[in-house]
């Protein structure tokens, strides 16, 4: 118990021996992983290796059967109170943006601050504009998501998460649904937003993206982490055979 407490001082996220089954499939196998405060981690690996599942477990979007996830010293259990507390600390950006199509860009951003933080509408709108300005899309505030391009929608989705002022952000393949032209734009945006030291876990298939963004890279396959290393060392000198094969295919 003492060890965990001490860890929580340096570790934003602590994943201890997590196992998840979906039917008979063993999706996460004895997962041990931790992320330090203000650290940016990229999760890479082939499709179906459990990267997204791990990310969604951290946010309690999915449950796991065995093990512990500790976020800033709070253990994630199934009580609504804990889940609520943890979700307020963590922002998430999805592959397909998942904006609310019936609300305008501004309403998308103010919804959660108004209803979760009980902020008044005017203040919420001011803050939303601040973040929309940051993602350079404030001129589109009154439009509906359908009227925006993919890159613009993803920027709105990022702003929407930032409006809740999360301490950590989870990115689930944020550029996979975008045109190649837009990818660099979103990457620059994420880099820019996280300069002030936000804890980030990013699942991605874009190696160049991972290399630029992350301090540390973890390679996952078949529900386990096979290798993790500092960004440059990971790419220059992969140790595990699976990693080597994977990187050869990707680069």
């Amino acid at each position: 118990m003492k060890g965990i407490k001490e860890n929580s001082r340096i570790h934003a996220i602590n994943i201890i021996n997590v196992n998840k089954w979906l039917g008979k499939m063993h999706i996460l196998r004895n997962m041990d992983f931790s992320v330090k405060f203000q650290e940016r981690v990229a999760l890479i690996g082939p499709s179906g290796s459990g990267k997204s599942t791990l990310l969604r477990c951290i946010n309690a979007l999915e449950t796991f059967q065995k093990g512990k996830i500790i976020i800033e010293g709070t253990e994630l259990n199934n009580t609504p109170k804990t889940i609520h507390l943890i979700r307020r600390r963590i922002g998430m950006v999805f592959q397909k943006f998942n904006l609310f199509p019936h609300l305008t860009v501004l309403e998308n951003c103010t919804l959660a601050p108004i209803w979760v933080k009980k902020m008044n509408k005017k203040k919420a709108e001011e803050e939303a504009f601040f973040y929309l300005e940051k993602v350079k899309i404030s001129d589109q505030a009154t439009k509906y998501p359908i009227q925006l391009s993919g890159g613009q929608q993803q920027r709105v989705a990022i702003a929407r998460s930032l409006c809740m002022k999360p301490r950590m952000m989870l990115f689930d393949e944020p550029t996979s649904a975008l045109d190649p032209e837009m990818i660099q734009e979103i990457l620059d945006l994420i880099m820019d937003l996280t300069k002030n030291g936000m804890t980030i876990i990013c699942v991605t298939h874009k190696m160049s993206f991972a290399r630029q963004l992350a301090h540390r890279i973890a390679f996952m396959d078949e529900g386990q982490i096979l290798e993790e290393n500092a960004s440059d060392r990971f790419f220059s000198n992969p140790q595990h055979e699976r990693t080597q094969i994977f990187l050869r295919k990707m680069l």
């Binding site: 609520h84 979700r87 307020r88 999805f94 397909k96 998942n98 959660a112 209803w115």
Partner: peptide, 16 residues
């Protein structure tokens, strides 16, 4: 389902 997920990840509650 992604709409529920996006909403829950923002911390919104069931009724909302």
């Amino acid at each position: 389902k992604s709409q529920y997920e996006a909403a829950t990840s923002l911390g919104l509650k069931y009724t909302t």
